[in-house]
Design a protein around this nucleic acid. Structure first.
Lengths: 336, 336
DNA sequence: CTGAAAGCGCTTACAG
DNA sequence: CTGAAAGCGCTTACAG
């Protein structure tokens, strides 16, 4: 109301102690007489005092603020819902750990590079999480030459000593394809994507599965899309003449398109062609209630990224952490 | 590398001026001899000096940081893609204005309230943008009793003196329904939502259109969903017995479900039943390539919210700004 | 276990 | 047009 802003000094006066003591109480410093601690806490309670975080940052060189960088190229190349879900997971973990989350949506990889430069320089953040298709490994150099802790979401294409958390897309592709093979399908096509690392990996998993089961890789059964529904429509059109009996569609958004094409050709799932998708649609949408799909642990990815980052901030010498979370096959049809 | 962190003091020494002058140059203070200004700028350039923003905040009481609050109930009640798009728009505008964007995803309205309390108290932010279904107007009191500038995304249900930017959902509902009426349809159903203000508004637009054209409101032609695809499926099932010749589906996600139901009943669009949707799917997905839909200017909403907030921060006495952006009808079929 | 004091790196009246 | 100095509100060795 009319009163001046409360500062630690005022609290100290009211509690009859020094500012230093108030500060220690608020920071859970251990060796304080409980009587004193309680007196301070009471005053804080009564007055509704809130510590000024900016002053705290300046004095302690800690901001309790972490950044999340998402270049928008990644945002569009990946199918949309991945990022919202990831962001939720990260936000949740950040709040739980009392960290403020600053969001940086880059508009291109170039701009993201600039963004990262700024972030590194201005020193506001304790650390950053970077999501990107790390095909080019643009930022790594800047990052490594700096002492701000960072973790990647998604494995960088080129093996290197950075902390990251990722889902195991090779295993996911393998899982989807194995499933179809085990069900007796033999002409298994793929609608893949060659636009980013996860796409490459899922395709690799597909190849590995065929190889492991002694099945040939038939190029006419391979088509690529860009994670849009449209591209799923046309990729499936390409595939139909090759007469697949099953198709692994590496994105549910593309699966939505593929299913549309099948419908137009009056082909039924799974009797004419079985489909396995890869989960990336918003919760409110489903490609098909019957569709078997590979589910990614996206929120968990976010949690782990935050956890890893915080540990790194605490102790920059932490051993390297490179996580590949397993996917899960959600079987919903009766392909058997 | 080995060098100590650069501070303004060091720059001042190198340029042969005082810290105050360096500060003024960096803040584009007008009355400085160009010679001096250039000397300072040169040193800054050569050394790669970056001002410490935390210190700047503390001294100037400005953080150049704005917050975006999204309670997750809103996040799920609305169909998913609205928020990512909105967030992009806001992030873009923030970056353009050299503001850092802090993201707060609440987990419930209660928690959001707590979140807002914290934000208000800790004083890190210059202002906040709050997205929510303002049906309950939870936060308003806290907000109004504080001096932190804020703007709402979405009109509050109860008329009040807060700044907001919204899209005109009444007009959107009206637009969709008018379109169908003009095409000669007479038994026009609606799949609405009574779960939030935009849902209420779209439904109101529908009613207004019927009224204006002297058409009766037939309750058997009204069904409600919750913005999920599933709910679109079942809402359409409810509607079919009432034999509508057209349906206004107030969300494309629900339209996706409605279309599925029509297909199962072997009903064709638009010959058997015409459909107009309401744009809320991710760009990569389309309910139907032929679907006519009402498009919301989501990114623009974000831009305007940031712009409004920044003006408010500059001058808290700004006159009230309550914006209802128009929607646009995207005609893609040949319903005519 | 606690206090006095220096310091974090800027900004901004105030004076000239 | 520019500088010296106070001040923003905390934290944290240092001393006791």
């Amino acid at each position: 109301m009319g009163q001046k802003k409360l500062t630690m000094k005022k609290i100290a006066e009211l509690a009859g102690v020094s500012k230093a003591t108030v500060s220690r109480v608020l920071n859970d410093y251990p060796h304080i007489r409980t009587e004193v601690r309680e007196r301070v806490l009471d005053v804080v309670q009564e007055t509704g005092y809130q510590r000024n975080n900016v002053a705290r940052m300046l004095a302690s060189d800690r901001s309790n603020m972490i950044g999340l960088v998402i270049p928008s190229e990644a945002e569009t190349v990946f199918s949309d819902p991945y990022f919202p879900t990831l962001t939720r997971g990260i936000s949740f973990a950040a709040i739980t750990s009392k960290q403020t989350l600053a969001l940086f949506l880059g508009h291109s990889d170039i701009e993201a590079e600039q963004t990262i430069r700024n972030i590194l320089a201005n020193g506001l953040l304790d650390g950053i999480i970077i999501t990107a298709d790390h095909r080019g490994a643009y930022f790594e150099d800047q990052l490594v030459n700096n002492d701000m802790p960072f973790v990647f979401i998604g494995r960088p294409e080129i093996e290197s000593d950075v902390h990251y958390v990722d889902t195991d897309n090779v295993a996911g592709g393998r899982m989807a394809t194995d499933y179809l093979i085990e069900r007796g399908y033999r002409r298994i096509g793929i609608i893949g994507s060659n636009k980013n690392v996860p796409g490459d990996d899922r395709y690799r998993g597909y190849q590995e599965a065929l190889l492991a089961h002694g099945l040939p890789l038939d190029e006419s059964l391979v088509a690529f899309g860009d994670y849009s529904m449209e591209s799923g429509v046309s990729a499936m059109q390409e595939l139909i003449p090759a007469k697949p009996d099953a198709v692994f569609v590496t994105s549910d958004t593309m699966a939505l398109g593929a299913l549309r094409t099948l419908r137009e050709h009056d082909l039924h799932v799974p009797d004419d062609i079985a489909i396995v998708g890869y989960d990336d649609l918003p919760p409110a949408v489903q490609a098909d209630p019957q569709l078997t799909t590979v589910r990614q642990p996206i929120e968990q990815t976010g949690h782990l990224a935050v956890e890893t980052l915080l540990q790194l901030i605490e102790n920059p010498q932490r051993p390297l952490r490179q996580i590949q979370l397993p996917n899960e096959l959600i079987v919903r049809d009766s392909t058997a």
